[in-house]
Design a protein around this nucleic acid. Sequence first.
DNA 1: CTGTTAGCGCTTTCAA
DNA 2: TTGAAAGCGCTAACAG
Lengths: 338, 338
Amino acid sequence: MGKPASPEAKPGATIYSVAEHAGVSIATVSRVLQGAAVVAEATRQKVLTAVDALGYVPLGAARSLAVRHHEAHGLVLPELSGPYYAELLMGFEARAAELDQSVVLVLTDSRTDLVAAVRQLATRVDAIAVFGSAAIPADVVRSLRAKKPVVVIAGEPHDGIEAVVAENVESARELAGHVLDHGRRRVLFVGDPDSGSDVRNRHAGYVAAHRDRGLDAAEPVRVALSEADGAAFARRLLAGEHEADALMCANDELALSIMTALQDAGRDVPGDVAVVGWDDVMTSRYVRPGLTTVRQPVHELGALAASRLHELVSGEPPREDAQMLPTQLVVRGSCGCT
Amino acid sequence: MGKPASPEAKPGATIYSVAEHAGVSIATVSRVLQGAAVVAEATRQKVLTAVDALGYVPLGAARSLAVRHHEAHGLVLPELSGPYYAELLMGFEARAAELDQSVVLVLTDSRTDLVAAVRQLATRVDAIAVFGSAAIPADVVRSLRAKKPVVVIAGEPHDGIEAVVAENVESARELAGHVLDHGRRRVLFVGDPDSGSDVRNRHAGYVAAHRDRGLDAAEPVRVALSEADGAAFARRLLAGEHEADALMCANDELALSIMTALQDAGRDVPGDVAVVGWDDVMTSRYVRPGLTTVRQPVHELGALAASRLHELVSGEPPREDAQMLPTQLVVRGSCGCT
DNA sequence: CTGTTAGCGCTTTCAA
DNA sequence: TTGAAAGCGCTAACAG
């Protein structure tokens, strides 16, 4: 009795074994599988029969090597908590699927060696989309760009790397204006304008809305974008460290955690202080009062990134300036509307 | 003047050009890049210099072909709305990263030809994890299994395909028991036990809790798991089509939309009717009353799937029965507790 | 319509 | 410590 076969042994049918089984050449097998050239119906059937008799699964790597491209797009995102990145990914994946591209995903928050991860990614895809705040050193992105098409999502275009973004400045101006027009005179911007171009532009719109009305904008309260950061800020606000009759938060997570903390402390929202956010996450519809916020076309943004990647791979030249998708103000009760 | 080079032309450095530039053989280049064999320090430096002078990016496909594996795991999920799948994916990706495996993602809701998508996936990865309710025909999964390791997440093990799951029956029994012990006597199960093993097992626990107390369980109200389905059910409940003093919903989306709809109609939750869910999504902490629910170790579930895939690829035999991760009851106010 | 054959770029013996 | 050379499995001319 010989050594027992590993229970996981892969049969390992190749194009050769299929050809042999079908009594044709490997070229013919390749032709029927690619569906390209014309093959006699009888021959085609023989091949197909052989294929599933042997349970043949082509080796993608061999094809990629021969055709000299991967038929895959890379996507680099910070993480997936909250609906924003997930929705972006869904849009990206859906469009990539339409274009017959696989998507290989890298989440930077789980990586210790980000640079290595991206380099490794570049090894197996034709093009890469990177989220703006994914914290990849600019020179890494640039060197990547020298080898493969790259687009940055929600970031600034630079060095021939094109960008796709959602509109921020004008909608922020509109949102801040809306709050100001409720008669609020001390509206604080909560979020760090230096943390990325999205927040920077939202802050710019906030400042513009004040300027429009001849008002002075307060200094931004620089906090990160998580629920925990919001809760911490709420405590400081409650302790009297800040004075405000309205809060314009850089995203909904922040707005939600702050609003809830204020309510739990007995403050009235929007009576004592109005709170508005950005993103229109699911929770924003459920809380009371409903959170006034801005909805971004996140799905479309992902899809656009995938489309551009494909076009760049196809040889189209990169665009000079960012493609911008429109956003939409969603007015609910937390801003002071009834 | 010749034809202008495409602005997207990839330089196309290969191991040969690097070797030439460094004045060594391609074998040596390979050795320093793999870090495997010992190479004289001086030689190593020459190679490294050449590598970034040329901006060399190895071609993954060529390596895969030579080493005969992809160093990539496939993951098939239905979609990513809501935190459940996103969290699962994060867990999977993180563990895969630790194991130096790329992850290529397929979302079935965006596919018209699911079978083709999975077949195509099999072409470029070493192993595949499929979410239980991803609606892949059983025979496709089985034929896949003949070629590569497969694990199903939150499904039943079968035909040598192993499964990883979160505990459902006992926690459902505990949850239903908790509601019953609040004195509720007409608790309805909202969700379709035939839609997948998760819901089936939650329903089984619900039935068991009744049996434990010598009570009769009502027939389940078979609805799908989205917010829209919940809202539709709420309308029917409000219209008097069902009678209940408590609702045990198959997931939080359902519970949340139902609870909100009831409240909007003036019903008191939990006074008139208690509502409990499953998953502990973010919103469940924010609504008032807080939603009583069950928290699953979703991240760990994803990580476990990735681990098993890797072990299977390494030749370990598949397990007979599902590996089960414990869940945790999260009691807030919606069940009747104060 | 089908077969032969030359690579695609990399890893890995085997020698030196 | 290094080089030569034989593949890995597939595609795509090129012949026939």
